[in-house]
Lab assay of single mutants.
Amino acid sequence: KAKLLVLLYAFVATDADTICIGYHANNSTDTVDTILEKNVAVTHSVNLLEDSHNGKLCKLKGIAPLQLGKCNITGWLLGNPECDSLLPARSWSYIVETPNSENGACYPGDLIDYEELREQLSSVSSLERFEIFPKESSWPNHTFNGVTVSCSHRGKSSFYRNLLWLTKKGDSYPKLTNSYVNNKGKEVLVLWGVHHPSSSDEQQSLYSNGNAYVSVASSNYNRRFTPEIAARPKVRDQHGRMNYYWTLLEPGDTIIFEATGNLIAPWYAFALSRGFESGIITSNASMHECNTKCQTPQGAINSNLPFQNIHPVTIGECPKYVRSTKLRMVTGLRNIPSIQYRGLFGAIAGFIEGGWTGMIDGWYGYHHQNEQGSGYAADQKSTQNAINGITNKVNSVIEKMNTQFTAVGKEFNNLEKRMENLNKKVDDGFLDIWTYNAELLVLLENERTLDFHDLNVKNLYEKVKSQLKNNAKEIGNGCFEFYHKCDNECMESVRNGTYDYPKYSEESKLNR
């Protein structure tokens, strides 16, 4: 008799109507990190870190770059004969040098303040090359056809396309004075040089004057150069050297050249137009028929994500570079809930034993079982409120962090190594801060989002509990077992918050 009662009780308990509160689960393989956990499985997430590029040089917003090819900045601007293909260059979106560009200054020497000139050019998007001192009329008392084997072109001695090597005419090199007034309405880049012979005999042979000088002056520039005559090792078949100089001439300003020898005179100059998204990159990537809004030396990035880990040097509207390998923000729920887990921000989770793959029309909802059958029903209101809140948060985070910009490298010469090392340390410090901030932001927001979901499920549970009161009992896994019969209409009233407690209280009292 006792065995019969136990079996009867078990049958009745199993047959009781139930309603459970749960949440969506799926077959997603997404994982995120939080402050407290690593690799948390979630139903949905968004990636904030771009880690792919196309490996190509592309047009930037429809404008092609200027590819210097086998030449570098120095060779292009001075007019190395091997860089003749660059003479027609007028406009570009950015400038590309190759790491091993070999054609710079063909006659050995240095372009002074080269690093600063590169910085200036990094904001130039177009130029006009014009004859600042016409070759045939500007130097009537001097020979202007100086050439050298060091600047050979097609097997013949030649010289820079933008400079003139002035030497004596006959047996004399009379003092020369020439000036140019900038009437271009924009900055003009003027380049010139000073020749330093290897011996007094060479000085006399070329310029006749043993104590020659070169003077260059404008409103913002004033220097006097004296040739340094000295024996030097042979470089590119030359014992002599040429140093090259430049200045930016403001609109309306005048530049005056005065010399008694050794002047490498300007022939062509450049009127410059600035462009905020221009820059110089060093890259071996090849040019393709493609378009982008962000270019790196590795390749083009076409992404609206706020961060990238491809390269710190970028041109155009680019994500911020960070050292992170993963920045994924959760938008959905835990896919593998932890039992009795309390989140960092106070939300209680884990009283549900598992997510439901059968509930596909919402994030949170119900599963019921009664004599009429069983089924899932999503709670659309709480789901939609959660979707709206999380979507707004993700968009806000992306908008705040998605300050796209150009980031170019800084140039230092060989004598500025300590400054370069200090600059690298400062840049590394800023990069570490950006990386830390980005990672911390994602970790915190992921923790908040998961706790937010847990709290929403808990609130749904409490909503049902407050309606049923003692007409049902909690069975410990997020479910309630009714003390009365609850048909589909009754189940719907529980879900929509209109459950009639008094209607079922007498039946429940008897069954309790």
Score class of each variant (00 low, 15 high):
residue 46 V to Y: 15
residue 177 T to A: 15
residue 99 P to L: 12
residue 234 K to V: 15
residue 69 G to P: 09
residue 11 F to H: 03
residue 104 G to E: 09
residue 190 V to N: 00
residue 212 A to M: 04
residue 80 N to M: 02
residue 271 A to I: 13
residue 267 W to E: 13
residue 212 A to V: 15
residue 72 N to P: 02
residue 178 N to V: 14
residue 237 D to G: 12
residue 18 T to E: 11
residue 135 K to Y: 14
residue 266 P to S: 03
residue 258 E to F: 07
residue 252 G to Y: 11
residue 61 K to D: 13
residue 39 N to P: 08
residue 36 L to N: 04
residue 44 H to A: 13
residue 258 E to P: 00
residue 23 Y to A: 03
residue 262 N to P: 03
residue 252 G to P: 00
residue 211 N to K: 13
residue 74 T to D: 00
residue 256 I to W: 15
residue 259 A to N: 09
residue 230 A to P: 00
residue 241 R to W: 15
residue 94 Y to N: 02
residue 47 N to C: 03
residue 127 L to F: 14
residue 214 V to W: 06
residue 58 C to Y: 13
residue 96 V to I: 15
residue 231 A to N: 08
residue 74 T to E: 04
residue 65 P to Q: 01
residue 123 S to G: 14
residue 84 D to E: 15
residue 145 N to R: 08
residue 166 L to K: 00
residue 263 L to V: 11
residue 104 G to H: 09
residue 138 S to A: 15
residue 43 T to D: 12
residue 137 S to P: 04
residue 202 E to Q: 07
residue 116 E to A: 08
residue 132 I to K: 06
residue 76 W to F: 06
residue 59 K to L: 12
residue 82 E to V: 10
residue 219 S to N: 14
residue 185 G to A: 13
residue 30 D to H: 13
residue 261 G to R: 00
residue 62 G to W: 06
residue 49 L to Y: 08
residue 221 Y to A: 05
residue 189 L to Y: 02
residue 159 F to K: 04
residue 243 N to S: 10
residue 156 K to N: 02
residue 42 V to N: 11
residue 126 S to V: 12
residue 157 S to N: 06
residue 275 G to C: 11
residue 166 L to I: 15
residue 19 I to L: 13
residue 216 V to R: 05
residue 245 Y to Q: 05
residue 21 I to Y: 14
residue 100 N to Q: 06
residue 146 G to F: 08
residue 232 R to G: 05
residue 167 T to E: 07
residue 163 L to A: 00
residue 14 T to V: 14
residue 18 T to A: 00
residue 182 N to K: 11
residue 5 L to E: 00
residue 56 K to T: 01
residue 175 K to W: 08
residue 222 N to F: 15
residue 160 Y to D: 05
residue 176 L to D: 00
residue 276 F to T: 14
residue 43 T to W: 09
residue 119 E to A: 08
residue 187 E to V: 12
residue 185 G to T: 14
residue 221 Y to G: 01
residue 138 S to Y: 03
residue 108 P to V: 14
residue 35 I to G: 07
residue 77 L to H: 04
residue 211 N to Y: 03
residue 247 T to A: 12
residue 216 V to N: 04
residue 102 E to K: 07
residue 14 T to R: 00
residue 150 S to W: 02
residue 17 D to L: 02
residue 176 L to H: 03
residue 44 H to R: 02
residue 158 S to E: 15
residue 193 G to E: 03
residue 67 Q to R: 13
residue 219 S to V: 07
residue 150 S to K: 05
residue 56 K to R: 14
residue 139 W to S: 00
residue 89 A to M: 13
residue 68 L to I: 13
residue 196 H to F: 13
residue 261 G to W: 12
residue 270 F to P: 00
residue 152 S to F: 02
residue 121 L to R: 01
residue 246 W to E: 01
residue 111 L to R: 00
residue 262 N to G: 03
residue 90 R to V: 14
residue 187 E to A: 09
residue 58 C to V: 09
residue 43 T to N: 11
residue 140 P to W: 04
residue 230 A to V: 15
residue 97 E to Y: 05
residue 95 I to T: 08
residue 55 G to C: 02
residue 157 S to H: 11
residue 118 R to D: 01
residue 219 S to T: 09
residue 18 T to K: 13
residue 86 L to G: 03
residue 38 K to Q: 04
residue 1 K to Q: 12
residue 208 S to N: 13
residue 157 S to D: 01
residue 149 V to D: 04
residue 194 V to N: 01
residue 58 C to F: 05
residue 80 N to Q: 07
residue 25 A to W: 02
residue 32 V to H: 00
residue 141 N to H: 08
residue 246 W to P: 02
residue 66 L to Q: 06
residue 229 I to Y: 13
residue 41 A to M: 05
residue 171 D to T: 12
residue 148 T to F: 00
residue 214 V to A: 09
residue 145 N to Y: 15
residue 200 S to Q: 14
residue 44 H to F: 14
residue 217 A to F: 12
residue 41 A to F: 14
residue 52 S to E: 15
residue 115 E to K: 03
residue 129 R to V: 06
residue 206 L to F: 06
residue 59 K to W: 07
residue 15 D to A: 14
residue 140 P to Y: 07
residue 101 S to N: 05
residue 269 A to L: 01
residue 70 K to L: 09
residue 219 S to Q: 11
residue 197 P to F: 07
residue 138 S to C: 05
residue 165 W to Y: 04
residue 232 R to E: 09
residue 134 P to G: 03
residue 11 F to V: 14
residue 192 W to A: 01
residue 35 I to D: 00
residue 49 L to Q: 08
residue 193 G to H: 00
residue 243 N to W: 02
residue 12 V to K: 05
residue 7 L to A: 11
residue 244 Y to A: 10
residue 112 I to F: 13
residue 104 G to Q: 03
residue 164 L to W: 05
residue 254 T to K: 10
residue 181 V to A: 13
residue 235 V to Q: 11
residue 205 S to W: 00
residue 105 A to N: 08
residue 199 S to D: 06
residue 176 L to C: 05
residue 218 S to T: 10
residue 236 R to M: 14
residue 8 L to P: 05
residue 4 L to S: 07
residue 242 M to G: 01
residue 9 Y to H: 04
residue 100 N to H: 05
residue 225 F to D: 08
residue 31 T to F: 01
residue 275 G to A: 14
residue 232 R to V: 03
residue 180 Y to V: 02
residue 177 T to K: 09
residue 2 A to F: 13
residue 231 A to H: 09
residue 255 I to H: 00
residue 34 T to M: 08
residue 203 Q to I: 00
residue 8 L to T: 01
residue 269 A to E: 02
residue 196 H to V: 09
residue 253 D to T: 02
residue 230 A to S: 12
residue 108 P to I: 01
residue 200 S to G: 11
residue 195 H to V: 01
residue 49 L to I: 02
residue 121 L to Q: 06
residue 164 L to I: 10
residue 247 T to S: 10
residue 78 L to M: 08
residue 61 K to V: 00
residue 150 S to Q: 03
residue 243 N to G: 07
residue 4 L to H: 12
residue 230 A to T: 15
residue 119 E to P: 00
residue 170 G to F: 12
residue 184 K to P: 03
residue 223 R to K: 13
residue 121 L to M: 10
residue 124 V to S: 12
residue 159 F to S: 07
residue 111 L to K: 01
residue 34 T to F: 06
residue 94 Y to I: 00
residue 8 L to F: 13
residue 3 K to F: 12
residue 182 N to P: 04
residue 56 K to I: 02
residue 75 G to W: 09
residue 47 N to V: 04
residue 51 D to Y: 05
residue 130 F to D: 09
residue 40 V to C: 12
residue 264 I to E: 00
residue 172 S to K: 00
residue 129 R to N: 05
residue 255 I to S: 01
residue 166 L to N: 04
residue 182 N to Q: 03
residue 55 G to Q: 05
residue 170 G to K: 04
residue 234 K to F: 11
residue 262 N to Q: 00
residue 91 S to F: 13
residue 62 G to Q: 10
residue 149 V to P: 00
residue 88 P to R: 09
residue 157 S to Q: 09
residue 136 E to F: 06
residue 247 T to K: 07
residue 135 K to R: 10
residue 102 E to Q: 10
residue 93 S to H: 05
residue 26 N to V: 01
residue 105 A to T: 06
residue 50 E to F: 11
residue 18 T to S: 13
residue 218 S to C: 14
residue 47 N to G: 00
residue 50 E to V: 15
residue 249 L to M: 10
residue 130 F to E: 09
residue 102 E to L: 12
residue 89 A to R: 05
residue 121 L to W: 07
residue 119 E to C: 06
residue 278 S to I: 02
residue 157 S to E: 03
residue 99 P to V: 12
residue 46 V to T: 09
residue 16 A to S: 13
residue 277 E to I: 11
residue 205 S to Y: 11
residue 182 N to D: 07
residue 243 N to K: 10
residue 99 P to S: 05
residue 164 L to E: 07
residue 121 L to G: 00
residue 137 S to Q: 08
residue 251 P to S: 11
residue 44 H to G: 08
residue 140 P to R: 13
residue 96 V to E: 04
residue 275 G to V: 07
residue 133 F to D: 05
residue 16 A to Q: 10
residue 253 D to A: 15
residue 167 T to D: 08
residue 6 V to D: 01
residue 193 G to P: 05
residue 220 N to T: 13
residue 178 N to R: 06
residue 245 Y to R: 00
residue 126 S to N: 07
residue 82 E to L: 12
residue 77 L to F: 09
residue 20 C to P: 10
residue 82 E to G: 14
residue 131 E to Y: 03
residue 235 V to A: 14
residue 160 Y to I: 06
residue 160 Y to A: 01
residue 74 T to G: 08
residue 78 L to V: 11
residue 187 E to Y: 05
residue 169 K to I: 11
residue 247 T to P: 00
residue 196 H to N: 14
residue 50 E to W: 03
residue 80 N to C: 05
residue 3 K to T: 12
residue 93 S to T: 02
residue 184 K to I: 12
residue 55 G to W: 04
residue 31 T to G: 10
residue 76 W to T: 05
residue 256 I to A: 11
residue 27 N to E: 04
residue 85 S to G: 10
residue 222 N to M: 05
residue 117 L to F: 11
residue 166 L to V: 15
residue 74 T to F: 04
residue 65 P to I: 07
residue 173 Y to F: 13
residue 60 L to Y: 13
residue 83 C to L: 00
residue 274 R to W: 03
residue 156 K to A: 11
residue 250 E to V: 11
residue 176 L to W: 03
residue 258 E to A: 03
residue 78 L to W: 08
residue 109 G to R: 04
residue 51 D to A: 14
residue 127 L to G: 06
residue 264 I to T: 03
residue 12 V to P: 06
residue 152 S to L: 13
residue 183 N to K: 14
residue 251 P to N: 06
residue 271 A to P: 00
residue 240 G to V: 03
residue 277 E to N: 13
residue 21 I to N: 11
residue 73 I to A: 02
residue 109 G to L: 00
residue 196 H to W: 04
residue 163 L to W: 07
residue 93 S to D: 10
residue 43 T to P: 00
residue 201 D to M: 08
residue 183 N to D: 14
residue 198 S to Q: 10
residue 38 K to G: 15
residue 193 G to K: 02
residue 211 N to I: 11
residue 169 K to F: 11
residue 100 N to T: 08
residue 155 G to F: 07
